[in-house]
Design a protein around this nucleic acid. Structure first.
Lengths: 208, 208
DNA sequence: TTGTCAATTGTCAGACGCTGTCATTAGCCT
DNA sequence: AGGCTAATGACAGCGTCTGACAATTGACAA
């Protein structure tokens, strides 16, 4: 069982995260100060920085949950599966179960709106993309392990993951731009776009 | 002919950029303050911010030159060329002629060292990746125009560019990690990695 | 040449993110 | 209960960046 101190810390962190996301999605990221977040939870500004390395980290914390889940899903895919297929299945699985994970902290509604804030805030988008690269690095190692190749000598794991990541980014952006901001819509786009990668690279666009 | 005022402005900007890159590559990005850059050129801190939107912009200005050149090269590719081939040729052409463009502002040596600074400085890497995405957006439009498809309705231009961009990023990172930090080495890696994309996506990695 | 106008710059003040330090508070454990 | 340690608050300070205003300097016409 958890100690009182740990429970208190968890509650403070959750409260800070909730307040931050709430403010970011209403007032906007840049127009929200750390002081406002801290005040909303009634702690000092210094305490905020003890729970989050910076304002950015609070803004990306929810995405981090989704990402961690995705990496886990890839790790648990059967080894017999081809690399790209494992990534595909893992990401689809992720969209299906994401709701539960997020809902434990904030309403899914907020998660979806936070996504748009990230996409429309240059500094957040930049941080998000950098984080994506770190995740791709992890995934490349996972795939290399599965296939028994050396990730430093063989470029194929990194190439495959980079291509997959690129497609997912295009999907993500399209999703954020379209009107339908739901996990179901994301699922559909993911499937459709992954199917079109082959044709986009090899076929003649004009003849279709 | 240029007016005196314009020449002076250009000289100030060049001097600031040179001083900034010089300091970034020696002392490091984070450990260099805007005041130091401004002092090195003997202007006020405020003036620095009139020439550059922020410290970041000064750090990425050289990369911006290279990127602009690349986009131009794609625009000038013959329309008959397949999309991916046009990108491939343009980027190779870019590596060949990059030296001249850079040398007009700073020694190429500094450009190459600045690349490593970007790669190893989280906030700069993040900004670099975001800028890459903007460029990919531009390229998608260029390709869509060439092929006569609608960039908003047809996902293939964005997918193709994203895949290409992903491969280039892997190449770039490998280049920065390897010892040989020359434009020739970059050229070689680019060719090799682009050749391996197909195999990485379709073939079985274990059997080769 | 000189006076007027506009552009460039310096100075100052201040917001905001973030960090180090130290005293204070509050939970933990014997 | 009382000592130990972790968490917090309060304060001071650094660095990036912005707004406002005054001073300077180049452009251009009378």
């Amino acid at each position: 069982m958890e100690t009182l101190r740990e429970r208190k810390k968890q509650r403070t962190r959750d409260a800070l995260l909730r307040a931050a996301v709430e403010l970011f999605t209403t007032r906007g990221y840049e127009r929200t100060t750390v002081d406002e977040i801290a005040d909303a939870v009634d702690v000092s500004q210094r305490t905020f920085f003890r729970y989050f390395a910076g304002k950015e980290e609070a803004a990306l914390a929810l995405q981090e949950l989704a990402a961690a889940r995705f990496v886990e899903a890839v790790r648990e895919r059967p080894a017999a599966e081809a690399p790209m297929e494992a990534l595909r299945q893992a990401v689809l699985e992720g969209w299906d179960t994401l709701g539960e994970v997020i809902e434990a902290v904030v309403p899914v509604e907020l998660y979806l709106r936070m996504y748009r804030v990230i996409e429309s805030t240059p500094v957040l988008l930049a941080a998000h993309l950098r984080r994506n690269e770190e995740i791709e690095d992890t995934l490349a190692r996972v795939l290399a392990d599965r296939e028994g190749v050396d990730v430093d000598a063989d470029p194929r794991p990194r190439l495959a993951v980079a291509v997959f990541g690129g497609v997912m980014r295009v999907t993500e952006r399209r999703w954020g731009t379209d009107g339908d901001l739901s996990l179901d819509a994301m699922r559909g786009l993911t499937i459709a776009y992954l199917e079109q990668v082959g044709p986009a690279l090899t076929q003649n666009w004009r003849s279709s």
